Simulated scan of single mutants.
Amino acid sequence: MSFPRSATRSALALAGAGVLVLAWGGSAVAAQQGSTTVEPAGAAFSATLDGEATFETGPITVTCAVSASDPGDGNNLVPDEPDNHNPEGAVGGPINAPNFDDCEADVPLVDVEVEVADAVWDMSMQDGESAVGTMHVPAAGIVVTTSGVASCTATVSPDADVDIEGTWTNGDPVSSLAFDTTAPIEVEGGVGCPDDTEAGFTAAYEVENADDADTPITVGP
């Protein structure tokens, strides 16, 4: 199944002598096993950034004000019964790749293109003492290319899919998924491009039932 490709102009950063700032999330929540049920079965859901997404590499901070994954093309759906329940593990399915827009960095005069891969993305939910939402990002799922101070290309996990785990909290009527994580990156380019191999990402998303706003999307046993 394919997903839409999006390219956005944003303001990530090249700091000082031209250090590229890029980040994405990695696992910060221990893997859990056990029964999981996501409700309501068959509901479409959206995930919308609550506040700002913060990207960090070293001393540089980048914030993005807009990020969302919306239903469409048969994606962002809670599985129908009985597949919305798994007695031995997580429940999940395909999602539309999130966008990142209205980004700003603490270093000006940098032009950045952010491209989201046209590939399979999916999300799984696992109940537990702390429920976990895991976004499965395809290899090279996000590529950031800079121009201006330095010409660099940064790729998130270029050679393998990567799992990005966040903490899920049931709400009424809006649940939340919070990321505070790290993931591998690869940076290519000339003078001024860094040799960073890992970067960090924090963000909180509001997850809402797109079919019935009064009925929350919940994760339970």
Rank of each mutant, 00 (worst) to 15 (best):
G93R: 04
F45Q: 03
A30P: 11
E52G: 09
A154P: 00
D101I: 13
D127K: 03
A7T: 15
S124V: 14
V114I: 13
P71L: 10
A178F: 06
W121Q: 00
E208L: 08
E56H: 11
Q126S: 08
V132M: 03
S130K: 08
A97S: 10
P173K: 10
G42D: 00
D211C: 00
I164R: 07
G92Y: 01
D163K: 07
F55A: 09
V66S: 09
P138R: 01
A23T: 11
C64Y: 00
C152P: 10
P79K: 06
A150W: 05
I142F: 03
E81R: 15
T36Q: 07
G141R: 03
I217L: 11
V19F: 12
A90R: 05
T218H: 00
T202Y: 02
C64S: 06
S27C: 05
V116F: 09
G89S: 05
D214M: 04
S46M: 03
V174F: 05
S147D: 14
S124P: 07
D161L: 07
F55H: 02
D111S: 12
S27Y: 07
F179C: 14
S176M: 11
T36N: 06
A213N: 07
T145L: 02
E39L: 13
L109N: 15
M125Y: 15
S6T: 15
A30S: 08
S6K: 12
D161F: 07
T202R: 06
A160R: 14
L22I: 12
D70I: 14
D102Q: 15
A47D: 06
G16L: 12
D73R: 07
V107C: 08
G166Y: 02
P71F: 04
V144W: 00
E165K: 14
P4N: 02
V107W: 11
V107H: 11
I142Y: 06
T155I: 10
G166Q: 09
W168T: 08
S35A: 15
G42R: 06
V191H: 11
P79V: 09
T167K: 09
A11H: 14
V38Y: 00
P98F: 13
A11D: 14
V62I: 07
T181E: 10
E81D: 13
E104F: 09
T218K: 01
S10L: 15
C103G: 04
S27Q: 13
G128A: 06
D195Y: 12
N75V: 08
P87D: 05
G93N: 02
A178G: 04
A183S: 14
G16E: 10
E88D: 15
S175N: 12
G200W: 09
D127P: 03
A30T: 14
N86D: 15
G166K: 02
V112L: 05
G93Y: 05
M1L: 15
P138V: 06
T54L: 13
T169G: 10
Q126F: 03
V120L: 12
D102G: 11
A117K: 11
G189E: 04
M125E: 06
A203M: 07
E113Y: 02
A160G: 12
N99W: 03
A90M: 08
V91A: 07
A160S: 14
A183R: 01
N99L: 14
Q33M: 09
M135W: 11
P173T: 05
N76K: 05
A199F: 06
A41G: 09
A160F: 10
P40W: 00
S67F: 01
V149Q: 11
A203W: 02
T37R: 13
V120M: 02
E188I: 10
V219S: 00
